[in-house]
Amino acid sequence: MATDVELRDIRQFTDNLLAWVRGKGKIVIVVHDNPDPDCLASAMALRHLFVMKLNKETVITFSGMIGRSENLAMAKELQIPLTPLGITDLSDFQVVCMLDTQPGTGNNSLPPGTRVDVVIDHHPLREATRQCRWVDVREEYGVTATILYEYLQVQDVPIGTKLATALFYAIKSETQDLGRDTNLPDREAYHRLFPLTNKRLLNSITHPKQPFEYFVTVSRALANTSIYGNVLVSRLGAVAFPELVAEMADFLLRLEDIEMVLTMGMYNNDMIISMRSNRHDMNAGDVLRQLVTGVGAAGGHGMMAGGKVEIASPTPADVEEMENLMTERFLAELGAASLPVRHLIA
């Protein structure tokens, strides 16, 4: 856990936050588009905190879709109540919270100009976030869920089996079993939560059946992968759901000798981009932000990053042009542009 001084600071922050929220009306939590385990578990935890300490219910809302099988299984098995942002009138809520995302990051569909009161995240602090009333952004943490776990601990809020399973799985999946971007609080939360989890639910979430589209995308990824030394680029074409792009990046990083992976896939009019790394001397978020400069938005941290480039009414030529631009910038950034190319499938 955090140090005694840090715990006192967390206790003071959460005491003040709860006192402020107590005097307000309805609460809404906005998570990023196509939510992943970290934002889902974090939303569950903050909702639980408000129920237990204030007896106030909270609406959890998101845009996009949940496509990845593990994330679908998590939402279903843990019975996480989710409401589409498109049918949510944010003006009805007196407290607006954002978890695992921030205003203006490009990975959420919060309407521009919407008042945001609470931001809790582990990604780099954005300038727009500084205007919010309650901000807890810890870039040194690997998982937002760990921050919410600490809230529950300092406020002496009991953690039930389903919430423990959600928080544990968020840390497990986001850090790949503590293998990337973790600190001591993440590791301690992981080990303390595991005994509280429902192992049957955890197995159902971790090992779900995969849809047909998953294997189609795996085949396409293997057929359209180029390797430049220890750098890999894969062009996925059209994907059935956005999370497949990140899933393929995780999958391809497992190839021996590969240190950096860039995957690109089209979903509707957006090119979804994911980057994965096992290098500690480079920040994947910084690299991807350089790649999309002038054409899109991106975010991330040490070993993982994601971004999006909108291509209005894309033709195959438009998509190929953007793929080429991203590839050229990626290879140039890593000094791999002059290396010979290899392919997984000839």
Rank of each mutant, 00 (worst) to 15 (best):
A284P: 11
V287L: 13
D100A: 04
E259P: 06
S42K: 02
E328V: 09
L72I: 15
L325E: 07
S338Y: 09
G306R: 10
L339N: 09
E213W: 03
S204V: 11
V30L: 15
V96A: 07
L163N: 11
L163G: 12
A332C: 00
L262I: 08
D250N: 14
K162T: 04
M304E: 01
T217N: 06
V21S: 10
M266T: 00
R11T: 07
V118N: 02
D318P: 14
P112E: 09
Y267T: 02
Y169C: 06
I272C: 06
L193C: 00
P340E: 02
G302M: 02
A128Q: 05
I87F: 08
D136S: 06
G307C: 11
D121S: 06
V233R: 00
P124G: 05
N203S: 13
V143C: 14
L236F: 03
S63G: 15
G300F: 07
V261S: 05
L99A: 14
I87E: 03
E323Q: 14
A346R: 13
L262H: 11
N278Y: 08
Y214D: 01
P111R: 09
L253V: 05
L253I: 07
V233M: 00
T58Q: 02
L344M: 00
I10P: 01
Y149R: 04
T129L: 09
G142W: 09
P242T: 03
R220A: 06
K26T: 10
G285V: 07
M282R: 14
C132N: 03
